[in-house]
Amino acid sequence: MGILLHIGRYFEFLRQVVGRPERTRLYFQRTLEEVDLLGVRSLGIVALLSVFMGAVITLQTSSNIDAAWIPRYVVGFTARQSVILEFSPTIISLILAGKVGSNIAAEIGTMRVKEQIDALDIMGVNSASYLVLPKIVAAMLINPFLIVISMFLSIFGGWVVSIGTGVVSPTDYITGLQWDFDPFTVTYALVKTVVFAFIITSVAAYHGYHTQGGALEVGRSSTTAVVYSSILILIANYLLTQLLLI
């Protein structure tokens, strides 16, 4: 019953969010601000994680492929496939669900308990749309760029490892990267990213918007938002993979 109530309220909330904006120009400005807050300010953590994860994927693949009959360039191939298909779009999105999602839920939840959302409603502003729509649009626009950057940096991390440790020669690594490349895998990754960006922002905003109580409940909303958006990302990941790749 509780889940059905949440599903109903979530879709009702989305209907409010896509309501007609009062001032399109103001929404555009807010979207640009959110691009900076949600995207540009996540670049550091995304870059750091990507470089190290690319390096680790390369090391692990190399240590697990020790049969003489498997060509060494398979290390580069496996690293590329792992990064493009799963690590960058899914794992980075899960990390963003923690960073950005908790931030959105806490921000909107605090506005709710401090009566700022009531103030918007009384002024006649569509508060759900004003607060949430720019965040959803911004994340859906900027996250694909973050993920593409993550892909390049992860592959770069693997290449640095190939030079630094010699577990695979840089030539083999680059040959593997280029071997049997299907550009559709990038399209698949970007489609997933856009869907995940929508889930992260809308689920976090929903939990923040419906916060009731005080500081404790804001914290609880923030945690719940991260949990639910992570679960939904995993479910959507499975469904999209089934739809697009199989």
Partner: peptide, 18 residues
């Protein structure tokens, strides 16, 4: 929404945008 533009409200917590 139109009638709400004719309404002003001061909240207990002031509800200023942080």
């Amino acid at each position: 929404r139109t009638i709400r533009q004719e309404i002003g409200m001061l909240f207990q917590s002031s509800a200023l945008f942080d």
